[in-house]
Amino acid sequence: MPEIFVTVYDVFMRTYPGFLEATVVTLQLTAIGVILGTVIGLIFALMKISGSKILQTIANIYITIIRGTPLIVQIMFLYFGIVELYTMSNFWAGAIALGVHNGAYIAEIFRGSIQGIDPGQREASLSLGMDRRQTMSRIVFPQALRRSIPPLGNQFIITLKDSSLVYIIGVAEIFSLGNREAAQSYQPFESFLVVALYYLVLVMIFTFLLRLYENKLDVDRA
């Protein structure tokens, strides 16, 4: 066996208890980031298609700022911003930053899929006497949501990887643990290889689950 496998194996066996804990933190950050992002994204998507100029402008400003600045800057900004006002753990500051960041991307996902629904659907619904709200919630949105699932799943995977950036505010997730491990053990290469493996395996699991879900949707429809 080449030497490198042996040393990576050693590092892995030595560090996995810590990394499993860190994996839980990473998954929590990701889950909160996506859930919060979905809520924010839905609100801003509805603002963008609302027909109200003011709401559209607010949504556009938010989306432009978030998409136009690096996530790591947003994390620092929110961290120092929020911690100034409220006492909050670093974990929550990081999770909220991820949620706010995701919200902009998820808003565009929802907007795109809502606008991608055939206008005939809306017209048919209105012609039956359903009002705008019923038409959105019962006819347009359920169809748009199905279309959003693949890009949302993609966003979930991006978030999983992006969550590594909250190491900067000292949240003990996978990357930050790997970083510490690398410095302490003088085995940076092996340490980051292990870090990479954790992310890779997580991403592969989610890709697989996503595919299962998409297939199920296809079967339901057929």
Binding site: A124, S127, G129
Partner: peptide
């Protein structure tokens, strides 16, 4: 208008059934 639309049925060229 929703009430009035409910009294006037409309059938479209492309059916526009709700696929879900």
């Amino acid at each position: 208008l929703t009430k009035i639309r409910a009294e006037v049925g409309m059938v479209f060229q492309h059916f526009n059934l709700f696929p879900h």
